[in-house]
Write a protein that binds this DNA or RNA. Sequence first.
DNA 1: CAGTATCCTGGACGATACTG
DNA 2: CAGTATCGTCCAGGATACTG
Lengths: 129, 129
Amino acid sequence: MNQDMAGLKERIHATDREVFFSVLSHIGDKWSLVLLGMLSKEPMRYTQLAERIPKISRRMLTVTLRQLERDGLVERIVHADTPPWFEYDLTELGRTLIVPVRALADWTLDNIDLIIEKRAQYDQENPGS
Amino acid sequence: MNQDMAGLKERIHATDREVFFSVLSHIGDKWSLVLLGMLSKEPMRYTQLAERIPKISRRMLTVTLRQLERDGLVERIVHADTPPWFEYDLTELGRTLIVPVRALADWTLDNIDLIIEKRAQYDQENPGS
DNA sequence: CAGTATCCTGGACGATACTG
DNA sequence: CAGTATCGTCCAGGATACTG
């Protein structure tokens, strides 16, 4: 393997690492998970999402939808009626993501009481933090 | 069920929701996953972690370790030799979290090429974004 | 209805210097 | 060695107003 190939490999791995974290960071961000969860039940319109998700700002609804769309997890379906209307739905890829996400959510729910307890315990043992 | 109980339940759920997201947000933050991954192989000392994780600042190493410790996912083991020394290791709870996290990481790795492709495609179709 | 544009704030994170 | 303390920056996200 020559220098160039080694260099190339480095760069590919660096990029993968970035994308890897950029995808995972969507999972961790404030709204993606909520949207994914909502859309896993049924396709919904922009305004429906805005109504059912308390406290989300229009800006973040748009931004988050666009990110999810860009990653191919959600699609914007245009219905060509008159007047036209729009729906958001999970893609096939989005649907496969729901599986590990659900597993993580289940883990969190299963352990939430324990974590609350651990937190309280830690805070008690470490007052000045 | 009387008013008070309904109110209590509301509040519990609200708290759960907060904790739920605060735990998930650890998963999404910049360093927790890396630390969890590192420690899933073997217990390590502070300086070892700092050396093996490129680019992490001492501050974020400390902050992230403390958060993980607070949630009961990582423990700081004090070895009472002279001089004493310290190790960080996953707790039992931390080890159980590795399972769904690994599943999510696997999903990301499995689909990373597709996502890169989708991203490029989206960017091409939507120039002004 | 389904968004976009603009402005603003708080907090995550990094750099750096210091300490028992 | 294993951190803590302080300061500064940047950007995610909210509030609000506007548009085809």
